[in-house]
């Protein structure tokens, strides 16, 4: 039994004119525990929709979607989502944002404080505990958002283009840090991105989604050693993966 199992998942939206939009069609994917999966595909192909379904934030139209062997019915404490727009609570400080999940689960104050301190250190925000989100740069806000997701000690992290709005340098730094965090936190990651190098650099497997209605076109195993180094970006096998994936996506546009 896979950790996250989607079989023949369909998702149909209705737009304002009551017209049907098929976002996902017969989407089948199984994810093993502690895997790092990236999902790429043309814009509007439904790759983000899949994350929302997996997070239990949207109901599926038909098919089976199981997490830890149980059908997904709503937001699960063991899965957490990170969004491109950070979506921090602007009225809460960095620390209060991170402690939001544990607070809802009535974790004791002492424990909350302890784990938020560790997380703040882990994402490199020491000294910014009492700042409000609007006082932070985009990169720092996304670090808070990642720490906030980790505070629930999730087994599955769903990331919807988390680095899409960041500049190239911040993006690279956060990619490296995310890999470190993933290894430390021992969790599974599903990561949607538009960037092919990012997909190759981070993933164990890259899932290529076809244009709408989204189905899985191909799953590519990335056979590069871990820990991943920055130098890999110029290695022949990396470039070969990149070229291959690019062709797959270009066929869809």
């Amino acid at each position: 039994m896979a950790f996250l199992e989607a079989s023949m998942v369909n998702k149909i939206y209705h737009d304002k004119k009551k017209q049907e939009i098929v976002a996902l069609s017969n989407f089948t994917l199984s994810v093993e525990e502690r895997e790092f999966i990236t999902i790429i595909g043309p814009s509007g192909c439904g790759k983000s929709s899949f994350l929302f379904l997996a997070a239990g934030l949207e109901p599926l139209t038909s098919g089976v979607l199981k997490f830890n062997g149980k059908p997904v019915k709503g937001p699960d404490p063991l899965s957490a989502m990170v969004f491109q727009e950070y979506l921090l609570f602007p009225w809460k400080t960095v620390r209060e944002n991170i402690e939001f999940g544990p607070e809802l689960r009535h974790v004791s104050k002492k424990q909350r404080r302890e784990s938020s301190c560790n997380l703040i250190k882990m994402v490199g925000l020491g000294g910014f505990e009492n700042r409000y989100p609007n006082e932070l740069s985009g990169g720092m806000q996304q670090r808070v958002s990642i720490a906030r997701a980790l505070a629930n000690k999730p087994q599955l992290i769903l990331m919807d283009e988390p680095f899409g709005a960041l500049d190239a340098l911040t993006r690279e730094t956060l990619q490296i840090e995310l890999l470190k965090i993933w290894q430390q936190a021992k969790c599974t990651v599903l990561f949607v991105t538009h960037s092919i190098p990012e997909a190759v650099y981070l993933a164990d497997r890259v899932v290529v989604v076809s244009k709408r209605p989204g189905t899985i076109k191909e799953i590519v195993d990335i056979d590069l050693p871990r820990p991943r180094e920055r130098e890999m970006f110029t290695s022949p096998s990396f470039i070969e993966y990149e070229r291959y994936l690019k062709n797959l996506i270009l066929e869809e546009i």
Partner: peptide, 29 residues
């Protein structure tokens, strides 16, 4: 209130009354 902010809060475990008192009302304040 930004619907995505609500989704972010729900994915962190806020539902029902907690969603109102901790997210919607502070956000609308």
């Amino acid at each position: 209130v930004d619907p995505k902010l609500i989704q972010a809060a729900r994915s962190l475990g806020a539902e029902g009354i907690a969603l109102w008192t901790r997210v919607l009302i502070p956000s609308a304040l």
